[in-house]
Design a protein around this nucleic acid. Structure first.
Lengths: 206, 206
DNA sequence: GGAGGAATAGAGCGATCGCTCTAATCGGAG
DNA sequence: CTCCGATTAGAGCGATCGCTCTATTCCTCC
């Protein structure tokens, strides 16, 4: 049963959070954007704005997480996937007039020191993204620890580039970060290969 | 003439912006934190909160920018400098209970789509940071375009890692990003050396 | 020691904040 | 058709928002 009032509230909130953050978005503005009656807001979210915020963070995180699976297809080249992901992100940032980058980064920074429930929600989303990338990188032959190291760096490159791109209104920064990200993935894969050769050589010598 | 009311207003605002962002910080909260009379706020900043915000962004940016010069000393090893910078940042984040990371990233994301004056202020700060790193990297032998590519990536790794660290309350993410950053710097320097050798070889052959 | 601008001090404005409350309306089950 | 919970609808609460305004005090220069 899609497109319910509840869903529209979350969707509108997600939209507004991206552009204005958490504190910058008012409840009345949300219900207006959602085309929902004001009473419905507190009917579906009796615990108020914070609860709606948490739900929105989780929902937005799941949406954006699907993009990871879309680009990092099992068995495909993770270097190419990384390049494509960053290129697509740069395009989106440019095409949306520097409004749509990460759906929850703004809120994450805002609430990190002000609301434990919301902070936790953002943390869980980020962890789930890292886990998703980890899976693909391990499938590509990396150890778990190397995969985690890499996924953290890819995340940071993307999020950091988003900040720079939105502030300077220059999407090429995301492409630049994407190039570095692809380099890091390539280096990790090379290291894996080198290790394997060394292992083979070692076994052969024994 | 330091420690004037005006200075204390900016200092208090910088402090609050880090933790609560722009919209999350009230004018009355600022004057209280600064121990300043309310009237003084509008005496020194007749154009209101936005003007104070812009000034604070510029000031905070200059403060943080000094750290770049502190770590990237002319003539020293940029790989080591990068490692040290990220390690120090991770320590700070940990020691301040995940409050003090980038002084203006939160505000930058908040205002990117809502206030042109403030957005511009954050953009100028970021550009100045990139320029500062560029200078050092060019001194280390990189071309301008390669230096810029690298500085953007270093910026992104740091800022992105800050987001992740604050959200998950795990400072090791900043260290992980620092390792990747150092790797990128090393790779850029290696590439420079390789290019030089190739150039020498080419000239010798001619 | 006045004069006069800089700075301090805070009451209070209209608007908006998140939220509570009551009442009306809707729609499916018996 | 009746009933009854789910949902819609919105008035209005106290608090806070950014800000204006009028006094008053402070300090400097003549």
């Amino acid at each position: 049963m899609p497109n319910t009032t509840r869903d529209r509230l979350i969707g509108a909130t997600a939209d507004l959070f991206r552009r204005q953050g958490y504190t910058g978005t008012g409840v009345k503005q949300i219900v207006e954007a959602a085309g929902a009656p004001f009473g419905s807001m507190y009917h579906f979210f009796p615990e108020g704005k914070e609860a709606l915020g948490a739900e929105t963070i989780t929902w937005s995180g799941a949406m954006y997480g699907q993009l990871i699976d879309l680009f990092y297809v099992a068995g495909s080249d993770p270097v190419r996937a990384t390049r494509n992901f960053f290129e697509a992100a740069a395009d989106t940032v440019r095409d949306t007039d520097y409004a749509d980058a990460c759906p929850i980064a703004t809120v994450a920074l805002e609430v990190a020191s002000t609301s434990e429930p919301l902070r936790r929600a953002t943390a869980e989303v980020f962890q789930s993204w890292l886990a998703a990338i980890d899976t693909r990188l391990v499938q590509a032959g990396l150890t778990k620890t190397r995969a985690r190291r890499l996924s953290v760096s890819l995340f940071a490159l993307l999020e950091g580039a988003f900040i720079l791109a939105r502030a300077t209104r220059d999407h090429t920064h995301v492409r630049t970060a994407g190039r570095a990200a692809a380099d890091l993935v390539q280096a990790a894969l090379d290291q894996r290969s080198a290790q394997r050769s060394a292992l083979r050589a070692g076994r052969g010598r024994k």
